[in-house]
Design a protein around this nucleic acid. Structure first.
Length: 637
RNA sequence: GCCGGCGUAACUCAGUUGGUAGAGUAGCUGAUUCGUAAUCAGCAAGUCAGCGGUUCGACUCCGCUCGUCGGCUCCA
């Protein structure tokens, strides 16, 4: 007699070992049809597995988080079979599930997206056949024998322990796999190949070049449609497209990976920094600036010459070797060392909008998201041991303040000591403990990435979430146990002894260029009033009214409202259309009536018009809306 | 850097099997003077990314270089 306990604590009893499917069928046939896999005592299994002792069981249905992963894993097998059916000599390697779908690395001649329809058709054929996934367990020797023609699989099998090896079979297709899998291929409803790229076996450039085929899959065609819609929306918002169309920035062959900012882009840039300075002053930061080019000796002392040299630009001046800074910290060290500090001066919060250059791989460049020259909104905080917690907490609060101003959510990740690292266990414990206590005090959940810290200290990464739900790592708070040592920094304690300060590096925007790009996509180019490069456009109805329009413009400029007059001899309709497609939040049309009465006609982006607004009734609310950095709309919506 | 795709006017893109190039938008000129999302006409604009090769002839085929896109990798 086998007793199965279900999540609602009901117990089903069976005379003989039932399979998961048997248990599901005992609930209802419809339910059984929807089940994907099962969780027995905390481990996932196929529904076909026989349960031979009492157990508590939870069925995995498409509603559960684990289900999608299983589905996609099965979909990867379907893709692998399809490719093997179509391309004779294709050798399968690995095919994991990734965040948005799955991929399979296959040793085969290059294919292109033109081949996708044929592969998809073959996949759909396999899906239609509702092939059952069967788990087969064999010995290591047998597995090696079965995959004797596939060196990749053999390599994988060799690395597995001596225990038995599980394989999965669907029809005539067998693949090495831990599982679990769907009951059958028919459950994969929304299936699509996404892209193709090269990848190396074991991510090693010296090894075989493989074809990586990406796909995604859902339980429901609708979900696939929704996903494709989001992808398309993201494509439409692509900051490279939107930024070019709005005239914010450009890139040129003469300086790959180094953006040029145009006047309208600089408006946004300056507003971002203005806001940043305001918040940092209020949070007790001072601002500093260090040179872009520094002597090689400094980089040797900081350790960058040893650890980061391949990313640094260098130059020889008067027979001396210089490096263009890839980070601001060494310069910051010199600044600190210029003064002499007592414990009363700490914490010292020194901000710096530093322009750094990093020679990134040419293939890694991507719009403003990955560049070779960028500005960091850096700050170095020097403090005593017992200030760690409060200082970290202060940074986290500042981060929250600033991100929420843009309507960006975020989550936190703590990275701990990596294998290759400097410092003592005690130092690491103390540093990591300080970060942990600050996070706990802060009160939000955080993820822990064991061993993912920098070699010189643990860190907290802050990942923002944009309007499309995509996440980006922007902010980071890193404790540095190396530089104060290398530069022999000190402060005088209350005990009149020299002490080594603790130092953190932190950024909030991260790379201002990248943050800019993220904002373009987050707002889809429709910046809130306070950020909009042109806040108001003034449209005279005819040429004769251009003079009055300019006068109105001057009045707004006096109030520091960014505005332009469009006095082209175009129709009003045309000028409105152009203003709308430039996402200018407020449009003032100037006709005879406005000139006579000295009022304004205000049109917002949603097409609503308010006539007869007095000048002051326009400027006052607009100015306060801007000053308060209101995220949504305008005072005239 | 590696693999693959792409590179035609300022921008977005056409260009059949090789016979030296077009459209829309923007720009300029002129007409129109307009009340809430595109007025009309004309003009000008390209070493077809660059270099080399094949060919009687190359935007088209081949090679290299540069840039760019998607991945690998790396990270802010």
């Amino acid at each position: 007699m086998i007793n199965i306990t279900l999540p609602d604590n009901s117990i089903k009893s069976f005379d003989e070992s039932p399979s998961g499917m048997d248990v599901a069928l005992s609930i209802s046939e419809g339910f059984a049809r929807s089940c994907v896999a099962m969780d027995i005592n905390g481990t996932l299994f196929d529904l076909k597995k026989k349960i031979d002792s009492d157990a508590s069981l939870r069925f995995i249905t498409p509603k559960d988080d684990e289900a999608l992963e299983i589905l996609r894993h099965s979909a990867a097998h379907v893709m692998a079979e399809a490719v093997q059916n179509l391309y004779g000599g294709a050798l399968l390697t690995i095919g994991p599930v990734v965040e948005e779908g799955f991929y399979y690395d296959i040793d085969m001649p290059p294919v292109s997206e033109e081949d996708f329809p044929a592969i998809e058709a073959e996949m759909n054929k396999i899906v239609k056949e509702k092939k059952s996934f069967e788990r087969i367990v064999v010995s290591k020797e047998k597995a090696l024998e079965m995959f004797r023609n596939n060196p990749y699989k053999k390599e994988l099998i060799q690395e597995l322990g001596d225990e038995e090896i599980s394989l999965y079979r669907q029809g005539g297709f067998v693949d090495l796999c831990r599982g679990p899998h769907l009951p059958h291929t028919g459950m994969i409803k929304g299936l699509k190949l996404m892209k193709i790229s090269g990848a190396y076996w074991r991510a090693d450039q010296s090894r075989e070049q493989l074809q990586r085929l990406y796909g995604t899959a859902f339980f429901d065609k609708k979900e696939l449609k929704q996903y494709l819609y989001l992808m398309e929306e993201a494509k439409k918002r692509d900051h490279r497209k939107v930024g070019t169309r709005l005239g914010l920035f450009s890139f040129h062959q003469e300086a790959p990976g180094m953006p040029f900012f145009h006047p309208r882009g600089m408006d946004i840039w300056n507003v971002l920094l203005e806001y940043w300075r305001e918040e940092h002053r209020a949070a007790g930061y001072v601002e500093t600036k260090t040179p872009v080019m520094l002597n090689r000796r400094l980089w040797e002392q900081s350790g960058h010459w040893e650890n980061y040299r391949e990313n640094m630009y260098t130059s020889v001046v008067d027979d001396e070797e210089y490096a263009i800074k890839p980070m601001n910290c060494p310069g910051g060290m010199l600044l600190y060392r210029t003064g002499s500090y007592s414990y009363r001066d700490l914490p010292l919060r020194a901000g710096e909008i530093g322009l750094v250059h990093r020679h990134e791989l040419s293939g890694a460049l991507s719009g403003l998201f990955r560049v070779r020259a960028f500005h960091q909104d850096d700050a170095h905080i020097f403090m005593t041991q017992d200030q760690i917690e409060d200082e970290i907490l202060g940074v986290l609060k500042l981060v929250e303040r600033i991100y929420s101003r843009f309507g960006l959510g975020f989550h936190l990740e703590l990275s701990t000591r990596p294998e290759k690292s400097i410092g003592t266990d005690a130092q690491w414990d103390q540093a990591t403990g300080g970060l942990r206590r600050a996070l706990d005090k802060y009160g939000r959940d955080y993820i822990i990435n064991e061993g993912d810290g920098a070699f010189y200290g643990p860190k907290i990464d802050i990942h923002i979430k944009d309007a499309l739900g995509r996440t980006w790592q922007c902010g980071t708070v890193q404790l540095d146990m190396a530089l104060p040592e290398r530069f022999d920094l000190s402060y005088k304690g209350a005990d009149n002894e020299k002490h080594r300060p603790i130092m953190i590096h932190r950024v909030i925007y991260g790379s201002i260029e990248r943050f800019f790009g993220i904002l373009v996509e987050h707002f889809a180019g429709r910046f809130p009033l306070w950020l909009a490069p042109v806040q108001v456009v003034i449209l005279p109805i005819n040429d004769e009214l251009a003079g009055h329009a300019r006068k109105v413009g001057e009045k707004l400029m006096e109030k520091k409202i960014r505005c332009e007059v469009d006095s082209r001899s175009e129709s009003l309709k045309k000028k409105i259309r152009d203003a709308q497609t430039d996402y200018i939040p407020l449009i003032l049309t100037i006709g005879e009536k406005e000139r006579e009465t000295g009022t304004l006609s205000v049109r917002t982006l949603d097409g609503k018009v308010r006539m007869g607004v007095a000048m002051d009734d326009f400027t006052a609310p607009v100015m306060s809306h801007i000053k308060n950095r209101v995220l949504e709309g305008t005072p005239f919506d």
